[in-house]
C-alpha cells in the first residue's frame, strides 16, 4: 500500500500533537494541578494517529480510559479537552466527565470509558445504526489487551460478525492490564488469534510504526465501508508511563520501557521522512513548535476558564429535567 508523503506528514503531525498534549498533562498532574487521575498514551501515539487518519471526519470512535490520543487524533479541540482535565465548565464534558469519560460527539468520539471493554458492545450498536441508516460511516473501536479477557469483548465481536457490521476493532496491546502482565493473564500471547473464533482474520501490526497501523486500518475501514463487515487488528505497543500517573511500576522491568523508548514512533517516522526528503528537519521542528503553541493555548484556556457552579451537578441528567 502506498501512502502519500502528505499523509505521512499528517500522521507525524498528529503523533507530535498527541505527545505534546500528553506531556503537558503529565507535568500538570505531577504538579498537582489536575484533579482525579489520568492514564497517558505516551509511546502509543502511533496507533491513535494511524487508526484515526484512516477515518472520515463523520466516522465514529469508541475510546478507552487511555483515550486522550484518540480524541486528539480524531480532531477534538485540545483547548476544551484541557479544560475538561482542569475540571472546568468549558471542558468537552462541562467538567462532568474528566479524563476517563472524555468525549466529543461533534467529531464522532463517543467517549472514553472507565470500564475495560465497555466500548465494544456500544461500537457494535453504532455499527448497527450505521447499517440501519445506510449512512456509509464506519465505527472504530479501541480497546486494550485487558479487554480481551472480559465477556463483552466476545459478545460484541460475535454480534458484529453475524450482522456484518461496519466496525473496526483495534486492540492496543501494551502488554499490561494495569499491573497484570498480558503474558500471565491471557491464555494466548496474541489477542488477534481470538478473532478466528468469530470468523475474522486477526491482523497483527507493529503499533510503534504508525504507517503499518495506518495501512492495516485503512484497508479494514475501506472493506467495512463497502459492506464487507468487521475487522480485527492488534497493534503491539509499549506503554512508556505507568498505568496511571504516579504508578511506581514496581512490577515492571525497566528494560521493557527502555526498549519502548528506543522504538519511539515519532522518531521513527520523522527519521524516515527526513531521510526520504519528504519532510525536512526544519519542517519537523516547526510541527513540534506548533504543537507546543497549541498546548500553551490549551493550558491557558483550561486554567483561565471558570469552574462549574456547584448546582450544575444537577444538570444534564435527562433531556428535560423532571
Amino acid at each position: 500500500m502506498s501512502i502519500s508523503a502528505e499523509k505521512q506528514r499528517e500522521l507525524l503531525r498528529s503523533m507530535i500533537r498527541i505527545r505534546a498534549f500528553e506531556e503537558r498533562v503529565r507535568d500538570l498532574f505531577a504538579a498537582g494541578r489536575l484533579p482525579g487521575f489520568v492514564h497517558l498514551s505516551i509511546g502509543q501515539e502511533g496507533v491513535a494517529a494511524g487508526a484515526s487518519s484512516a477515518l472520515r471526519s463523520d466516522d465514529y470512535v469508541l475510546s478507552t480510559h487511555r483515550g486522550h490520543g484518540h480524541m486528539v487524533a480524531k480532531g477534538a479541540d485540545t483547548a476544551r479537552m484541557m479544560a475538561e482535565l482542569f475540571a472546568k465548565r468549558t471542558g468537552s464534558c462541562k467538567g462532568k466527565g474528566g479524563s476517563m469519560h472524555i468525549a466529543d460527539a461533534s467529531v464522532g468520539v463517543l467517549g472514553a470509558n472507565g470500564v475495560v471493554a465497555g466500548g465494544l458492545s456500544i461500537a457494535a450498536g453504532v455499527g448497527l445504526s450505521i447499517k440501519q441508516r445506510r449512512s456509509g460511516q464506519v465505527c472504530l473501536c479501541f480497546f486494550g489487551d485487558g479487554a480481551a479477557n472480559r465477556g463483552p469483548f466476545h459478545e460484541a465481536l460475535n454480534l458484529a460478525v453475524i450482522w456484518k457490521l461496519p466496525v473496526v476493532f483495534v486492540c492496543e496491546n501494551n502488554g499490561w492490564a494495569s499491573s497484570t502482565a498480558h503474558r500471565y493473564a491471557c491464555a494466548v500471547p496474541d489477542v488477534a488469534v481470538r478473532a478466528a473464533g468469530y470468523g475474522l482474520r486477526g491482523v497483527i501490526v507493529n503499533g510503534m510504526d504508525t504507517l503499518e497501523v495506518y495501512g492495516a486500518v485503512r484497508e479494514a475501514v475501506e472493506r467495512a465501508r463497502a459492506g464487507g463487515g468487521p475487522a480485527f487488528i492488534e497493534a503491539k505497543v509499549v506503554r512508556w508511563q505507568g498505568h496511571y500517573e504516579g504508578d511506581p511500576q514496581g512490577y515492571r522491568d525497566r528494560a521493557e520501557i527502555a526498549d519502548g523508548k528506543s522504538r519511539d514512533p515519532i522518531e521513527r517516522l520523522g527519521t524516515k521522512l527526513a531521510g526520504e526528503g519528504a519532510c525536512g528537519t526544519e519542517q519537523i521542528a516547526e510541527m513540534h513548535r506548533a504543537a507546543q503553541e497549541e498546548m500553551d493555548r490549551a493550558v491557558a484556556f483550561g486554567e483561565s476558564s471558570p469552574l462549574p457552579a456547584p448546582e450544575e451537578a444537577l444538570e444534564d441528567l435527562f433531556a428535560a429535567q423532571q
Binding site: L62, L110, I122, A123, A124, G125, L128, S129, E155, A156
Partner: peptide
C-alpha cells in the same frame, strides 16, 4: 431488519442498543 433476534448476549443487546440510540436510532 427491524425485529432483530440476537444471540444470548445480554451485555451486547444493551450495549448495542446504547450505541444505536446515541447515533440516531
Amino acid at each position: 431488519d427491524r425485529v432483530l433476534d440476537t444471540p444470548i448476549s445480554e451485555a451486547a443487546i444493551i450495549g448495542a442498543s446504547l450505541g444505536a440510540a446515541i447515533t440516531g436510532m
